[in-house]
């Protein structure tokens, strides 16, 4: 007995195992990946701690003044030192709106990716493991879903929600509608990938061994098969995070996303767009740059993860 307790002491912990892993090794070897990880981390932290670092709370009517509107960035001749990236039409500090906007963008992004992942992985597992008619039905639904562009699905769900909830209530639930809209338009990729991996894994002998001792299909799917198909899921999730953020921005830009009172990056770009040709370029350019950097950094991370987890590309 005592020797078995020693086992845990001898084995390296998960932290050290990660530091010795091939994954970490390939991470360390790619400066671009390190840079994009650092940028992503800074942006996520900045969004998370926006209330602490932002110069003002752009959603608090008491702290903003219409008199401060349309200040250009601080470094131009007419700029004000207090507003580093200038102010918008309502006198809100652009830097602050970006930080707060990123919160909403990231929150929608993460939540919709998780929703898509849960739906997609579950359906993929069931389709792959159960097979037969169930598989056919799930995959045909996926095929149909795939023929709609993601943005169209999102618009459709948004429109339906708007019609049901009415304009006032809609503002309250807009966050959930966006998550649902984006989540539902991205699940297919997870389902297909997981189904493919499950078809491979389910024929492996460790699954036969588990069936032999009479484990239920549910147990086998979640305890045995799922951990072995998570690698590709993680890759898709990372790349999808960037896509989800952009989709949210697109929806907001089209005016079906979050309202201007609680602007996300997309809403900010839309608001600023109105002033682009009257010379107040900073209102739209800075949120635009932030969105581009955020999406690029996350996407590069996803690309690296895909290559690092794919033994063929090593």
């Amino acid at each position: 007995m005592s020797e078995l307790t020693e086992v845990t002491a001898v084995r390296p912990g998960p932290g050290r195992r990660f530091l010795q892993s091939d994954l970490f090794y390939s991470f360390r070897r790619s400066p671009l990946t390190i840079a994009s990880a650092v940028v992503s981390l800074i942006l996520v932290l900045a969004a998370l701690f926006a209330p602490l670092i932002a110069p003002q709370n752009p959603f608090d009517p008491a702290s903003i003044s219409i008199i401060d509107s349309f200040y250009p960035p601080a470094w131009s001749s007419e700029g004000q030192a207090g507003f580093l990236l200038g102010t918008d039409d309502q006198g809100r500090d652009v830097l602050s709106t970006i930080l707060y906007g990123m919160r909403i963008s990231l929150a929608v992004g993460f939540a919709s990716v998780i929703l898509a992942m849960v739906i997609g992985v579950t359906l993929g597992l069931i389709a792959g493991y159960v097979g037969g008619v169930t598989d056919a039905i799930i995959m045909r639904i996926a095929d149909v879903q795939l023929t709609f562009p993601a943005i169209l699905t999102a618009l459709l769900i948004d429109g339906v929600a708007r019609a049901i909830a009415g304009p006032h209530a809609y503002d309250q639930i807009v966050f959930f509608v966006l998550v649902l809209a984006i989540g539902l338009s991205f699940w297919v990729q997870y389902a297909r990938t997981v189904r493919g991996s499950v078809l491979v894994e389910a024929n492996k002998e460790y699954v036969l061994a588990a069936r032999l001792i009479g484990l239920s299909p549910f147990t086998i799917m979640f305890r045995h098969v799922l951990p072995n198909v998570l690698g590709p899921v993680l890759v898709i999730a990372t790349i999808n995070l960037a896509l989800a953020i952009i989709t949210e921005a697109t929806l907001s830009f089209l005016g079906v996303g979050v309202p201007p009172t609680q602007p996300s990056l997309g809403t900010l770009i839309r608001i600023g767009n109105d002033y682009l040709f009257s010379g107040e370029w900073w209102i739209t350019i800075f949120p635009g740059i932030t969105l581009a950097i955020l999406a690029l950094a996350v996407n590069l991370l996803g690309d690296w993860l895909r290559d690092a987890l794919n033994p063929k590309l090593r």
Binding site: E205, Y206, A209, L212, P227
Partner: peptide
């Protein structure tokens, strides 16, 4: 049962 491929018969995780 004991299977043929010892690399596939043990769950790698």
């Amino acid at each position: 049962m004991i299977f043929q491929d010892p690399f596939a018969s043990l769950n790698p995780r």
